[in-house]
């Protein structure tokens, strides 16, 4: 008897007399879905965002330069950045530049991200494309004259 009552309340409590779901409950569910979708979009954008990738690679490259000896050639796999730049219709060959002891990484038309390297090296960089959808940044460090 109790079981039947519980089942009835679970199945029918959302219905009004005509058997329709009340509007306020629909709005309530929709607002919840909207809110959690917004949170999901925020988390996704933060973890896959252009800014995060620019920041990550600028720091990675700066640290690699600082730990290198003169004459070292550094190869960095930038296939992930190549994909992001393509999505943003940005030319990957304009994404990296080295100036005044700073590495600058830019993957969209927005401002990029820059990070200092403290070693006084002359840095030359070339991007190569070993396979389709793959890209490598080749950096050569030399002592400053």
């Amino acid at each position: 008897m109790k079981k039947n009552k519980l089942l009835k309340s679970l199945t029918n409590h959302n219905l009004n007399k005509k058997g329709n779901i009340p509007l306020e409950e629909v709005i309530f569910v929709l607002l919840n879905i909207m809110f959690f979708s917004m949170l999901f979009v925020f988390v996704y954008n933060t973890s896959h965002g252009v800014f995060l990738s620019e920041k990550l690679y600028a720091k990675k490259i700066a640290l690699a330069i600082d730990s290198a000896k003169p004459g070292t050639q550094i190869s960095v796999d930038i296939s992930e950045l190549y994909g992001i730049a393509q999505e943003n219709e940005f030319d990957i060959s304009d994404s990296f530049y080295f100036k005044d002891n700073q590495v600058n990484v830019k993957l969209s038309k927005e401002d990029g991200y820059s990070y200092n390297y403290f070693t006084n090296y002359q840095v030359e960089s070339v991007i190569s494309f070993p396979e389709e959808d793959q890209a490598t940044l080749n950096i050569k460090v030399r002592p400053n004259d």
Binding site: A58, N104, G112, Y113
Partner: peptide
């Protein structure tokens, strides 16, 4: 204590 930052400089080379 360097944390990097956004770059607004245009590419020159």
């Amino acid at each position: 204590n360097y944390k990097g930052g956004k770059n607004s400089n245009e590419q020159t080379n």
